[in-house]
Lab assay of single mutants.
Amino acid sequence: EPLWIRPDAPSRCTWQLGRPASESPHHHTAPAKSPKILPDILKKIGDTPMVRINKIGKKFGLKCELLAKCEFFNAGGSVKDRISLRMIEDAERDGTLKPGDTIIEPTSGNTGIGLALAAAVRGYRCIIVMPEKMSSEKVDVLRALGAEIVRTPTNARFDSPESHVGVAWRLKNEIPNSHILDQYRNASNPLAHYDTTADEILQQCDGKLDMLVASVGTGGTITGIARKLKEKCPGCRIIGVDPEGSILAEPEELNQTEQTTYEVEGIGYDFIPTVLDRTVVDKWFKSNDEEAFTFARMLIAQEGLLCGGSAGSTVAVAVKAAQELQEGQRCVVILPDSVRNYMTKFLSDRWMLQKGFLKEEDLTEKKPWWWHLRVQELGLSAPLTVLPTITCGHTIEILREKGFDQAPVVDEAGVILGMVTLGNMLSSLLAGKVQPSDQVGKVIYKQFKQIRLTDTLGRLSHILEMDHFALVVHEQIQYHSTGKSSQRQMVFGVVTAIDLLNFVAAQERDQK
């Protein structure tokens, strides 16, 4: 057995438009009618409502009807409940999964919650491996369901041993009777949507819809739904939504950006999952974080739909894509998950301010006199920076000697690579993860907040409520011999709460 199987392995699926269902090699399930009293909570997966979006479509000038398939009504709160249950049931049916076995899954959280929910009911041990950027709410729900959680670096490539995929496979090879159901490759993922989600949409719309818009992560949702719609409703256009920084969209030119990270969760990847059939997507749109969270908040405030950030991405694209539809036509959007997962993220004004998705003037509360002053007023001194090749031991000596707790790590040209902190280095040394002679590049981390000289002290204040420091950066445009230009970030300084307090105190003292 291989040590790991690539999540982007070539698909062996034989589905073709027009091929009889009787030739399918898979076990198919028909939607079942729910009894009045459910035998367990797993029976509350599927049969989610279709809700008309009344205000947002009109606000953006849509002539067509805009409908939302509300997947956050599933038992675990997301569309991923469907595939989690289906993968477990299919693994039980073919004898792969037996009582007492362990389920391991690399996930952005929602599939993990679905699997942990099913594992709690069915009696399996469950280990979820997820990147650090995923919300604390997801972690809390997983723990409450009895799952064990392993976190991995957000910026690790999918084929790196440190990625959530790599760590999951390492655990599988170490733990007896453990299984990775593997949402990236498992046919049960798109089949769950082909058999149930798509049929529900067709039934709820009486077979009449002209466009379907869905955000894409593993691709199982859009693949399964689109294949069924292509068979039953061939005139329906399928629109895929991919965040900026991901590479799922086609044509490839759409993916060209210097951005590699994004805040919206559960969609987009740096590889093409095996289950994603991009041939059934008629057109791709890219979405960005700001519009995703703005539209998610709009869905909550104006439509009462308590959905997550990827739902915002989907609707932001839908109001663009559906401009081509006329009166009497219908566009369906998939709202994948609930706001429950993001209470401390985009639902929080403070978080939105820190990330730059909300401006101070958007909030009406009274601010102190210094709130709208610029960061450049602080008069920061030149920063202490270190090269990635310097040793951890030497870096600790320098920081202690100069009285700093942290320093930016830059390359020879001064471009920011990340940050090192005294606390992080000492804990890594004590844990045996690094040696004093190791290069400081081994303990770089990139989960820090950046701020510009033109940003306000109010925004800085919000950042420092949650973080010990902020890195002050400025952009530099560099022209190359080819005539092309590129933008790079340079370090201007490091600012802490002490710097802000000293500035405010000094100004008030001078005024007296």
Rank of each mutant, 00 (worst) to 15 (best):
T454C: 14
G268N: 00
V443E: 13
L426V: 12
G493D: 15
F492W: 15
V375Y: 07
T395E: 04
L254W: 07
R509T: 13
E397Y: 06
E412L: 13
Q256D: 08
L380F: 04
S313T: 15
A316W: 11
L347N: 01
A407D: 04
L335M: 11
T364Q: 11
E397P: 03
I498W: 09
G356D: 04
T389D: 14
I390S: 11
G458T: 08
E250I: 10
E252L: 12
D362H: 11
A316Y: 14
T294D: 05
L430W: 11
L305W: 00
G414Y: 08
L276F: 07
L254Q: 06
T274C: 02
V440D: 08
V420Y: 15
F469D: 07
L299V: 11
Q489W: 12
T496L: 08
E265D: 05
W371K: 10
D362Q: 11
P336C: 07
P243D: 06
V443Q: 13
N341E: 02
T274F: 00
V319W: 01
K442E: 14
Q507W: 13
P273C: 00
E365P: 11
L422P: 05
G379R: 12
L417V: 15
K512M: 12
Q439H: 14
D438K: 11
A506F: 15
K283Q: 14
Q406H: 09
E360M: 13
V434H: 10
Q376G: 10
V333Q: 02
V281C: 10
F404I: 13
M425A: 06
N502H: 15
L430C: 08
A413R: 14
D270R: 01
P408W: 14
S348M: 09
L384R: 09
Q329M: 14
A318K: 02
E397C: 07
M298Y: 11
Q323T: 12
L353V: 15
E475N: 11
K442C: 15
W284F: 02
L276E: 01
I247T: 11
D510A: 05
V317M: 11
S310D: 05
N502K: 15
F293T: 00
G393T: 12
T482Y: 11
F271H: 03
L347Q: 02
V275M: 08
Q447Y: 11
S437T: 05
G328Q: 08
L299R: 03
F357G: 02
G493A: 12
P436E: 15
T261V: 05
T279W: 15
F285L: 12
C307H: 06
D510T: 10
L399A: 13
V473F: 15
L353Q: 10
T314C: 06
V264W: 00
E252D: 14
V495A: 13
Y262I: 01
L429F: 15
Q487R: 14
T454R: 06
Q326S: 13
A316N: 11
G418L: 02
A413G: 15
G379Q: 12
F271L: 04
I334D: 00
E263Q: 11
E465M: 03
K484S: 14
A296Y: 03
N255E: 05
T496K: 08
D467T: 05
Q376N: 12
G328N: 12
K320Y: 15
N424V: 15
Y445Q: 06
L305Y: 14
S287Y: 02
S428E: 13
W351I: 00
M352R: 04
S486F: 13
L373I: 13
Y445N: 08
G403Y: 09
Q487C: 13
L460F: 14
E365G: 14
L299T: 04
P436W: 10
G493M: 04
Q376L: 15
S427T: 11
T456Q: 04
G379P: 12
E401D: 15
F448Q: 11
I444D: 12
Q259Y: 04
H474T: 10
Q256E: 15
A316R: 14
E263W: 07
E252Q: 15
S461F: 15
D242V: 00
E365M: 12
Q302F: 13
V504P: 04
D277A: 03
L384V: 13
H462S: 08
P383L: 14
L399Q: 03
R297W: 02
G441F: 15
L464G: 09
D289V: 00
N502V: 11
K359T: 15
C331F: 01
A292W: 02
H468R: 13
Q450F: 15
E252P: 09
G493W: 12
R452F: 12
F404D: 03
S486E: 11
K367T: 11
H372Y: 13
R278V: 02
A318C: 11
K484H: 11
F357L: 08
M466S: 14
G493Q: 05
A505H: 03
I451A: 08
E377P: 09
G393Y: 04
V494E: 05
V315D: 02
